[in-house]
């Protein structure tokens, strides 16, 4: 074990000994964790790369909306992206179309970049050891990185949603919304459902954040971690399309992603959505603990 790491391991214990106040550690831990999370959040969101990723995600709904608007006349019924028949009737549906298009590829790609780079990127630029010299503790650093990853999921999904809402409002009529079960609800209620859908889509990327974090602890190269996380997403989706793998498919983390559409029925059908969230929790537990296991025992050489 390197010298740097033993300093990091001993750090919190040593400072605890220096301040012999009973119960003095707890408030410092909470405040310290918060500060760490805050610094991770600002590190993530102030990067040019993150801004660029969010900008690309915001362009996607604009592109879809424009194409649908131009092609509406000749479009054959039911052909094209999801909810195409609804988008032309109500611009709010562009939110759901954009999410359905972005969820399989674009969103996981950006999340894979952020999550995969989280630890490995620090290691490759040599900043990881300085982070660990501070009395933060590896577990807390991992939790802070995971929280920042989740925040990025929410920001990315919300970006797609807001850009789609703006585009939809500009190009298509708004008003009462016909759900995919044929029932009609008010625009305000539909907007609440859109917020719910954005939340569910963001949560369905949580498993991927945990996987990316784990991959990130395995390597010292940020690029390698990003590439393998994004590659894994693509591989899993290919596996999900083989009928021969029917038995294992319900356990692939991408399998229930598109169940968010079930929230657009009246009454809402939660079965698939809950399965999805449960599966994401499973992946967070397994890969989160694997990342912890790897990271707390790893030699930090850079």
């Amino acid at each position: 074990m390197s010298r740097v790491e033993s300093v990091a391991e001993a750090g919190p214990g040593r400072s605890a000994g220096a301040v012999p106040v009973v119960g003095g550690r707890r408030p410092r831990t909470a405040a310290g964790s918060l500060a760490l999370v805050r610094s991770e959040l600002s590190l993530t969101f102030r990067r040019t790369r993150t801004i660029a990723l969010l900008g690309i995600l915001a362009l996607l709904p604009v592109l879809i909306g424009t194409v649908v608007r131009i092609e509406t006349g000749g479009a054959r019924g039911g052909e094209g992206p999801a909810f195409i028949a609804q988008v032309t009737q109500n611009g709010l549906f562009l939110v759901f179309t954009a999410l359905a298009v972005a969820l399989p590829v674009f969103l996981p790609m950006t999340v894979g970049v952020v999550a995969g780079d989280s630890i490995a990127g620090e290691a490759s630029t040599g900043t990881l050891r300085y982070l660990l010299v501070a009395p933060a503790g590896r577990t807390r650093l991992l939790v802070a990185k995971f929280t920042a990853g989740l925040a990025f999921c929410l920001a990315a999904t919300a970006t797609v949603g807001l850009a789609a809402l703006a585009t939809g409002a500009a190009l298509f009529p708004l008003g009462e919304v016909t759900l995919i079960s044929g029932d009609t609800i008010s625009f305000g209620e539909a907007l609440l459902r859109a917020v719910l859908v954005v939340g569910v889509v963001a949560c369905s990327l949580a498993g991927l954040v945990a996987i990316g974090l784990f991959v990130s602890t395995l390597t010292g190269s940020g690029i390698a971690a990003m590439a393998s996380t994004v590659g894994l997403v693509i591989t899993v989706q290919i596996l999900d399309s083989f009928p021969q793998l029917h038995a294992v498919q319900p356990f692939l983390f991408t399998h229930h992603w598109l169940t968010f559409g079930d929230l657009l029925r009246e009454p809402m059908y939660w079965d698939g959505v809950l399965k999805n969230l449960g599966l994401q929790a499973f992946y967070v537990a397994v890969f989160g603990s694997a990342a912890w296991s790897r990271f707390t025992g790893r030699d930090i050489t850079a």
């Binding site: 391991e9 919190p12 590896r138 577990t139 989160g288």
Partner: peptide, 14 residues
């Protein structure tokens, strides 16, 4: 996860 941190921290002198 937090309790693992405590364990690691607690072993500082062990």
């Amino acid at each position: 996860m937090t309790d693992h941190t405590t364990t690691t921290d607690g072993e500082g002198g062990a």
